[in-house]
Simulated scan of single mutants.
Amino acid sequence: MMTNLFSSFDPSTSMNLALNWISIMMGILILPSMFWVIPSRINFIWIKICVTLSNEFKVILKMKKMKKSSLIFVSLFSLILFNNFLSLFPYIFSSTSHLVLTLTLSLPLWMSFMIYGWINNTIHMLAHLVPQGTPSILMPFMVCIETISNIIRPGTLAIRLTANMIAGHLLLTLMGSTGNKLSLLMINMLIIAQLLLLLLESAVAVIQSYVFSILSTLYSSEVN
């Protein structure tokens, strides 16, 4: 049983089992069954968002045979967005604030792009290591720099999402923990600040899920 908001970062429970990870898919139970049967306004809005994202990803994915894979990145966006919003509720496990989940999403994607690119487009991948217009004397250094930047891509994707989720949750918790020491006027101001910060965190949840999926799409387009 969770005793405070910091417990949302703890994957263990009182039974010493990591049952909190079930929260990744638990939110599907919240959706009403009629959402899947009879199209509603919420359903139409979500379909519109998915179609818009799919068209945007198709522009980045240049090859025709790769454009069908835009549904993978739309699904990735949906999963991250769903978990980001779910973790904003008190006492709900924040799965996207753990590198275990974010690295699980970014590392297999990056490895599949690299394996596909180096096997099928080896010359193209080698050309990416030396940017166009680089002087000959700087080429060895640019190869090292580009190689390192390529290797750390899954880590930067994972850490970016994790850090943004942790920062917002901790700020909300630290501000809320000072409420019992404030006057009535200051409590009202604290509630307003908390609501504004929660609104900001909602925007961050959308932005970070979009950034994660769009960067994954950009990385996949470089191997073509």
Rank of each mutant, 00 (worst) to 15 (best):
I119G: 07
G176F: 01
H128L: 14
T122Q: 14
S69N: 12
I45M: 10
A127T: 11
Q208H: 08
I92Q: 10
N224R: 04
S221R: 07
I92V: 14
I137F: 15
S112P: 00
F44S: 10
N150A: 11
I49W: 01
A167K: 09
W46N: 13
V100K: 13
G133D: 08
L218G: 14
L81S: 10
D10K: 06
V143S: 10
K181T: 09
W118G: 09
T173V: 07
M165T: 04
F6V: 00
I22A: 14
F82S: 05
E201V: 01
H128F: 12
I24A: 03
L31S: 09
I192W: 01
A193S: 09
S54M: 02
L71C: 02
G133R: 06
T3A: 15
L185E: 13
L190D: 07
G176R: 02
S112Y: 09
P108G: 07
N84C: 03
N83D: 08
I187Y: 05
M175F: 06
I24R: 04
L190R: 09
L31D: 11
S54I: 05
T147D: 04
L107M: 13
T96D: 11
S12D: 11
L215P: 03
I151A: 13
I123W: 02
L79K: 00
I207N: 14
L157W: 00
S75E: 06
R41I: 06
V100D: 09
L5A: 07
E201L: 00
S70A: 15
S94H: 05
T134P: 04
M139T: 15
A167P: 03
A163F: 03
P154S: 05
N224P: 06
F6A: 12
T96C: 03
T13Y: 02
Y210C: 00
K181Y: 10
S23G: 03
M25Y: 13
Y210V: 06
M66I: 00
L198A: 02
T147H: 10
H128S: 11
L157N: 06
S12P: 01
S213T: 10
L17R: 14
L197F: 04
S220M: 14
P11R: 01
L199Q: 03
L129I: 01
L197E: 02
K67N: 10
G27Q: 01
M189W: 00
N4A: 07
F57M: 04
S87I: 03
V211C: 09
M63H: 13
P140S: 08
A158V: 02
K58C: 04
L81V: 07
N188W: 07
S95D: 02
Y219N: 09
A203S: 11
S7V: 08
L172Q: 15
F9R: 09
N150G: 15
V37D: 06
H169S: 13
P90C: 09
I47M: 12
M125K: 10
L86W: 15
L182G: 06
M189K: 10
A167G: 04
I192Q: 01
K64D: 11
I38H: 07
S136R: 13
E222K: 13
L103Q: 07
S95T: 02
I187S: 04
W46S: 12
M2V: 09
L197G: 05
T134S: 10
C50Q: 11
I151V: 14
F113E: 03
M15P: 01
